[in-house]
Design a protein around this nucleic acid. Sequence first.
RNA 1: GGAGUGGUGGCCGAGUGGUCGAAGGCACACCCCUGCUAAGGGUGCAGGCGGGAAACCGUCUCGAGGGUUCGAAUCCCUUCCACUCCGCCA
Length: 430
Amino acid sequence: MHDIRAIRDNPAAFDAALARRGLPPQAADLLALDEERRAKILAAETAQAAQNAASKEVGAAKAKGDTAEFERLRALVAEKKAEVARLTEEAAAEDARLRDLLLMIPNAPLPDVPDGPDEDHNVELRRWGNPRNFAFAPREHFEIPGVKPGMDFATAAKLSGSRFTVLRGAVLRVHRALGQLMLDTHVNEHDLTETWTPVLVRPEMMLGTGQLPKFAEDSYETTNGWWLVPTSEVTLTNTVNGEILDEAALPIRMTALTQCFRSEAGSAGKDTSGMLRQHQFEKVEMVSITTPETSRAEHDRMTGCAEAILQKLGLPYRVIVLCTGDMGFGATRTHDLEVWLPGQNKYREISSVSVCGDFQARRMNARYRPQGGGKPEFVHTLNGSGLAVGRCLIAVLENGQQADGSVELPAALHPYLGGKTRITAEGALA
RNA sequence: GGAGUGGUGGCCGAGUGGUCGAAGGCACACCCCUGCUAAGGGUGCAGGCGGGAAACCGUCUCGAGGGUUCGAAUCCCUUCCACUCCGCCA
């Protein structure tokens, strides 16, 4: 959420930021509403002050036994009270209107984010690793003979419908190993605190991180008003919702392995084969809570944490910075990691690492008290996948596939597989 | 699901109709003393909103919403949440 005072101070900068997102200017409308709102507040508070003053006099009049004056003041208070009630209600309504509008406006891109309308204008920052040369036509993950017995879409469709997968045996073991490898790496080597959270949350939390109110159709709501998290960014980030933290406690670095639930509304026809795009998937998430001064450096650090996983697995990838038109709602800058999928012969997103500035913090009212005292300030928040486990499984399978239908697994996984190194063409761990 | 208790400032914790935005403690900041490793003293220190160049002023907030009253953290209603006991249960 944007700070209305910042918009007041520099409306042109605000509209320029919107323009970079491909949105029409809104500062004038917002500020007009803000004017109205402040006028209402002033009127309401002036009336309130009058009522309070009269109230005090009432007490004095009563103490003196001045009945006439007492009754006169009583009437005055009653009159003011009605006026106050009307004006405060109007002021609150203006305030809510303004807030509702602000909640729907995306974050401003940082200056060094490339401009562009869509993903074609994203900029590649670097590549790591070289795609294998296959002496045969590499298959997509769900076509690999050794994978097929462990990846059952028909049964999943019976149970739940499309965009679900049933995993079994060796493939599932690799899936589980990947999650463990990621968590261990982040905990042991990156100093993140492993955290286990609910996946059902109150709507206020979804509002805090920005999924609500604008993107309600992308997530699932339960019959009693909980929401299934589309990412544990929601729970990890909202752990500081409403808090005033000591600066000394920052940065707070968390990681979690959770189920994620997305309705994938609007993605009909996209990635319908395999388990690339699912309604339910597993993801290791990273979240950092920092001061404003350190959030940019933290962004690079977090990007590195995600890259480390792909490097351990020997999976070729590239890092891109999303252009203004492709960035998510709450981000000021986003790095996507795209892993090489030989079956598709392209790089596909496997991680997205964003620095959100104080955008989410303002929604959550999450602050810290600066060292040396002073007023609380909003924290900065960052989140990133480290990594999407299902997509990582796909990458491991496709990159490790052999001509005979078996899959060679990365050495980093072997300890998590009881020393086994491959999936046979028949689907067994060996 | 049944019965009960409770929600106060960054934290802990007093406060049961007016003099309370709120004692005390902790934490934190600055200063003094001491002189050395969980010593002492002093001062300051809730947050939001609005006005103001600023000093500062106004206003709201004691989970939330509503009510009683001239006046509510304190009384009443509703609601949310937490905890305890019982029941059920992975």
